[in-house]
Design a protein around this nucleic acid. Structure first.
Lengths: 198, 198
DNA sequence: GTCTATACATCGATAGAC
DNA sequence: GTCTATCGATGTATAGAC
């Protein structure tokens, strides 16, 4: 049956992707060898091309998987009464997401693979996440672009320092609440005119 | 004379380093090809090993040069009356340093070369810079480790976002003053006991 | 789809002659 | 110090049998 064939193919694709993550964790993102990857899934190297048309396509699939996981995780956050609590929960979750798999973080948020650009399809997943963030920020009274940029600065700084200087620990992640309190104090001290304001 | 020989050797080393920066700017850090590098300085590829024992040793020399330049730039900052102004000047200079040469920034502050660890000698230059930062922060009333970590978070965030999302521009660098004002407001709101306090 | 076999270009690195 | 020659590995890709 055609369905069986398609399902087997999809299963093999998933198997290849899982093996790719394994290799990436061991040797780094750039250290994935297609010959070794093929070995891990009982294929010969040229046969990988039946599933991914290039190594970049493999990275692209990994990039998409990472972003879909992040979107899912974001959607699974419990609703909060206060909109700012939602931003706190989001940020905590993001730091956790980032520290639990540094390689995935690097693939998604650092430009480390030379020449790799996400396909429009994969990038859509990334955009979906950013939209969720924007929406939560907006509900918390943060909608000016420069205020959003300030927020991304803080989160990027926490994630960068945490993964680079204390992987596995929480030296910087532990600053999350303090950083956000500081952020909202700054926002409140310079209120921005909003659409609904009189 | 022995001096002449040593000087010629040092000059060739510098020539190789300069060519390496040229290639890195064109092709990225990882894109440096030893064969092309040798061509640029009129050598054959294996002869480079008379000057650098490996490609990592070349990166190490570049890492050290970058850090020495940063230390020099920091020492050249004009003294200020107010200690917090010195931190502002330092941060502005750092953002400028980072944006004027993104490749150098990546080499110095991101872990992008697989397996590259600075030698103790090169790392000493990096430590020298951190000591200067610590000293300026301390003079400005920031000496608790968690407060220093907060500062590094902010600077890392600005540098990361600026270089990654707006290279050549100043979308995030332009937030520097606001970020530092926010930082010092936070510091003042939670004063830390200091050695000299009564 | 998967295989064998092969090819090409590139890479960092090393041996050994001079 | 510099060279030629070479090694072993990589990613990429294709041809052609089954």
């Amino acid at each position: 049956m055609i369905d069986t064939r398609a399902r087997r193919r999809e299963a093999k694709r998933e198997q290849i992707l899982a093996a790719a993550w394994t290799l990436a964790h061991r040797d780094g993102l750039g250290g994935i060898s297609l010959r070794e990857l093929a070995d891990l899934v009982d294929l010969r190297q040229p046969s990988l091309y039946a599933y991914f048309e290039s190594k970049h396509a493999l990275y692209d699939a990994m990039f998409e998987a990472g972003n879909r996981a992040l979107v899912e995780r974001t959607r699974a956050l419990k609703p909060t009464e206060d909109a700012r609590d939602a931003v706190v929960d989001l940020t905590r979750m993001l730091l956790e997401f980032v520290t639990e798999d540094v390689v995935r973080y690097v693939l998604m948020f650092q430009r480390q693979i030379p020449g790799f650009e996400p396909s429009p399809n994969s990038y859509a997943a990334a955009l979906e996440f950013y939209e969720l963030v924007r929406s939560k920020l907006s509900a918390a009274g943060v909608s000016a672009q420069r205020d959003i940029d300030l927020f991304t600065t803080l989160v990027a700084g926490l994630a960068d320092q945490q993964t680079a200087n204390d992987p596995g620990g929480d030296r910087w992640a532990g600053l999350t609440d303090r950083v956000l309190a500081m952020f909202f104090a700054e926002i409140d001290s310079k209120p921005t005119k909003r659409k609904g304001a009189r």
